[in-house]
Nucleic acid binder design. Structure first.
Length: 365
DNA sequence: GCTGGGTGGACACATGTCCA
DNA sequence: TGGACATGTGTCCACCCAGC
């Protein structure tokens, strides 16, 4: 059967629907550390987001630039280096963009309810926390946040994307074996063409292929390699269906999903809370050194544990996590200026603890 | 270049609490 | 009273970096 192609050759539109009134691309993207992680690239001069996204075959990627004109009812997605996009791939791209930017009726409902509880967030157009085009990417990035500095996390993620680019643009014969799906005219493997210097974030299939040793040696992910590979293997075998968990999280209590995730090796309370946030369950605040620092610095709460954090944000239930991120973002922007206007080279510096060190070193008045 | 302390979340185990 | 669950604490691990 002939695959049909989009009439629009390289420009796609994602309707905002019910999200139109509350949506602001800059505020939606530049509000969580994930936007600083490769392969995301925020271009402050044009207020647009550039990154590779998967085509329908899940194997090849294309670079897209996502932008939004104020008052427009659609998000504009420019697909680079492509003469045409099949309808299936178009749907795949739109689905990924909608996930990243939380464009859905459910997300809009959450934003409105949260802003009702936290009016200042409405003023600041805050409510959508940026995430990845796939839950798998969110999960791996959450693992990479652990036991290291922010700068190191950024490096590990970047190395993974570089490795993905290297391997995906390897010998043609290998790529043919990887991609059984037939591609027709115009559906070039974008990674074989102009790649804008960055690969996509590897999917589970690619990570299984890389293996633990390569992740350790090339990407310097250390002990995290075993957890990531195990996760990727479970996804590939079908013993772990992340999308099903996400759906369960939406349908029933997050506690069931919380328990299931906690059973996985390498998934501690911080990682699980971060994943739940990405899934759209905001009741658990990820508690790490940064959370404790923030509560100490902003509210004078010293030596707090996860229960103290839970107690502190219970006013905003079931959106405790969004409330926490709103406060944290405000403190970052107070110290470093607007995150959306930062230079990429400043990204590794964005932690409150850095600020704390500066404060401690500053002469006391 | 080597060494050892610091970092920070996960993990394993110990202890505490609750409820049938 | 005992099992299930929650909480606290010490240890582990890989890396960074200052000091020698």
């Amino acid at each position: 059967m002939e695959e049909s192609f989009s009439k629009s050759k390289c420009l796609l539109y994602l309707p905002l629907g019910s999200c139109k009134s509350s949506f602001n691309l800059e505020k939606t993207v530049c509000n969580h550390g994930f936007f600083m992680m490769a392969p995301n690239k925020w271009i402050s001069s044009t207020k647009s987001l550039q990154r590779p996204l998967r085509l329908a075959d899940q194997c090849s990627s294309v670079i897209v630039t996502i932008s939004h004109l104020p008052e427009s009812a659609n998000i504009q997605i420019y697909v680079h280096d492509m003469e045409g996009v099949s309808l299936k791939s178009e749907q795949a791209i739109l689905k990924q963009v909608a996930r990243m930017l939380r464009i859905s009726d459910k997300d809009e409902k959450a934003v409105n309810e949260f802003q009702g509880l936290y009016p200042q967030a409405k003023q600041d157009e805050f409510g959508r926390i940026f995430r990845s085009p796939s839950l798998f990417e969110d999960v791996v990035k959450s693992i990479l946040l652990c036991k290291c500095t922010w700068g190191k996390t950024l490096n590990m993620v970047k190395s993974l994307c570089e490795l993905q680019l290297q391997l995906s643009s390897g010998p043609r014969s290998n790529r043919k074996k990887q991609c059984k799906t037939k591609r027709k005219r115009g559906q070039n493997n974008a990674t074989s063409k102009k790649n804008h210097g960055i690969g996509n974030f590897p999917n589970s299939k690619e990570l299984v292929k890389f293996g633990e040793t390569i992740l350790r040696e090339r990407c310097k992910v250390g002990y995290r390699a075993q957890f990531i590979i195990k996760l990727a293997q479970s996804v590939e075998k079908g013993t772990l269906v992340l999308e099903k968990l996400e759906m369960e999280c939406n349908l029933w209590s997050y506690k069931v999903v919380h328990r299931k995730l906690s059973e996985l090796k390498g998934f501690g309370p911080f990682v699980v809370a971060t994943i739940l946030m990405c899934m759209g369950c905001y009741e658990k605040v990820p508690v790490d050194s940064e959370t404790k620092r923030h509560l100490n610095q902003a509210h004078g709460i010293s030596s707090c544990n996860s229960l103290d954090v839970e107690e502190f944000y219970k006013t905003y239930a079931p959106f405790q996590c969004i409330a926490f991120w709103f406060e944290l973002l405000q403190s970052y922007e107070k110290d470093h200026g607007k995150l959306s206007e930062l230079d990429e080279s400043d990204y590794p510096k964005i932690t409150g603890s850095q600020f704390l060190q500066n404060e401690e070193n500053a002469p006391k008045s």
